[in-house]
Design a protein around this nucleic acid. Structure first.
Length: 480
DNA sequence: TAGCTTTGACCCGCC
DNA sequence: AGGCGGGTCAAAGCT
């Protein structure tokens, strides 16, 4: 099993202040797996720790998600005030598309929304980086709409920023981190470009071009024209960046440098060594940091046909979730053990009834049409399968209006409000099968309750011990 | 017998 | 208006 059992006592292996990476997260990173919000928050905290600059703010995914789902502007203001968004020059906001605050497994795609106040030429703007556009555009627009009233400028536009395309259904989170990394790399150099229109978008573009070049040199077989002939929108700019790169590095860190770090029963989490400290200590070991897209590419382990796909499939079976692919098109190369809709690699926790099959023009494989078997559920999906059992493409249409009939055994996403609340206190019974430390949950709940300024502490990688621990209350209730 | 897949026919939008 | 192609229907067959 990809995530193993017994996560109730999941070992915490890396920390950034209040942000803790668990052993199960390393498994996710090794995978090909959909990144959870803890991993994203951890990496952003890691980036933020290197840029002690009040102008640059990197928020954990829980904060923008909370802001997007608060019931009224007053609640939004209460949460957002401590963030001082109007005074920042650049704010990085991870966006998840989970439409259901009560559903921990609802999200399926990560993107990055950037509030940019740094460019005097363009003026304030929101820039959205989506590795599968326009999948998350509605969620990004929603977040931008919530934030606009908090900002002095009026009618701040939202534009789509340059973003490399993912080639599978699970690497969106890695792309978010890669773009965030590119922006943070550019940040210290911005003064050199202050008198021109060369902004951080150009820096991201440069990274992307380099990645394209490196990909072609490194692995010509990943040439889009040979890998994804049947889907032009993806085939045009495919990049085989994978979560394994970051994961391999983290795993190396945890094995080599955190061996002495044992699980802690309660906070303060400062007993854990910080990510930065680990890096500083790693001089004797050649474990360079992952700070750019090109590094991610260059360290990308070669994908083997069977192993990684099996792990990916196992993750799907474990989580009942096809990360990043609900309501969007994904392409993948996974082995299919059999043709049953329930047991195949296309198994996603829901029950499907096949109602048609056609040979479509432009695709060498037959396309099968499925409906969700739930009586009132409108969701359909199309699956193209190669003769040898590989899934060439899955397209989901609509949103399920019911819970999964086959509950996931091991949730991977912890973006939901329910999860945030469930993980608010270290002593709580975790509701996420052991992954009991959601990102920034203390900060979010405290901010909601009274404007605690601990988010700054979080941003700087500091302990959030000054935030009072409170008994867990349902954030969902708070939102009502 | 229920529930699922298969498969040819049909519908409908687009050019 | 007619052809084409994608999506859906529904009867028949299978498990």
């Amino acid at each position: 099993m990809a995530h193993g059992g017994g996560e109730e006592e999941e070992e915490r292996v890396l920390s950034h202040g209040d942000v803790v990476l668990l052993r199960c997260d390393l498994t996710i990173l090794r995978g090909p797996h959909f990144l959870n919000d803890r991993i994203i928050a951890f990496y952003l905290a890691h980036l933020a720790a290197d840029h002690h600059d009040d102008d640059l703010l990197l928020l954990p995914p829980s904060v923008p998600y909370l802001l997007s789902n608060l019931p009224d502007p007053a609640s939004v203001a209460a949460v957002a005030d401590p963030l001082r968004l109007a005074s920042r020059r650049l704010v990085l906001l991870p966006v998840n598309d989970n439409p259901d605050v009560s559903h921990a497994e609802g999200g399926s795609h990560w993107t990055l929304l950037v509030l940019d106040n740094s460019n005097a030429v363009s003026g304030p703007r929101f820039v959205h980086h989506d590795s599968l556009p326009p999948t998350n555009l509605p969620s990004a627009r929603r977040l931008a709409a919530v934030l606009r009233p908090l900002l002095p400028a009026s009618a701040i536009p939202l534009i789509e920023g340059p973003t490399p395309r993912q080639t599978n259904g699970y690497d969106c989170g890695v792309f978010v981190l890669a773009v965030a990394s590119a922006i943070c790399n550019w940040w210290p150099t911005r003064a050199r470009h202050s008198n021109s229109d060369s902004d951080w978008l150009e820096a991201v573009k440069r990274e992307i071009k380099l990645v394209h070049y490196l990909v072609m040199l490194d692995e010509p077989s990943h040439c889009p024209s040979t890998q994804l002939p049947s889907h032009p929108s993806i085939a045009s700019t495919s990049l085989p960046v994978t979560a394994q790169d970051f994961g391999t590095w983290c795993d190396m860190q945890s094995h080599k440098k955190v061996a002495a770090v044992k699980p802690v029963a309660s906070r303060p989490s400062s007993r854990l060594r910080s990510f930065s400290m680990l890096q500083e200590d790693s001089t004797a070991i050649d474990s360079p940091r992952v700070t750019s897209l090109e590094e991610i590419i260059l360290r990308r382990p070669k994908l083997e046909d069977s192993g990684t796909h099996t792990a990916y499939d196992q993750k799907k079976a474990d989580t009942g979730k096809g990360a990043c692919w609900d309501n969007l098109t994904v392409s993948q190369s996974v082995r299919k053990p059999n043709v049953s809709a329930k047991n195949s690699l296309s198994y996603d926790g829901y029950s499907w009834r096949k109602y048609g099959q056609k040979q479509v023009k432009g695709s060498e494989f037959p396309r099968s049409y499925y409906k969700c078997t739930h009586p009132t559920c409108p969701v359909k999906r199309k699956v193209e399968m190669t003769p040898d059992g590989r899934i060439a493409e899955i397209v989901y249409n609509g949103e399920h209006n019911h819970p999964k009939p086959h509950p996931p055994r091991k949730p991977t996403l912890s973006t939901s409000v329910e999860t945030l609340v469930a993980t608010n206190d270290a002593g709580l019974e975790n509701k996420l099968e052991g992954c009991d430390q959601a990102i920034g949950s203390d900060a979010v709940v405290e901010a909601l309750r009274g404007g605690c300024h601990c988010l700054d502490g979080f941003r700087n990688g500091n302990e959030i011990s000054d935030c009072k621990k409170r008994p867990t209350a349902s954030l969902e209730d708070t939102l009502r």
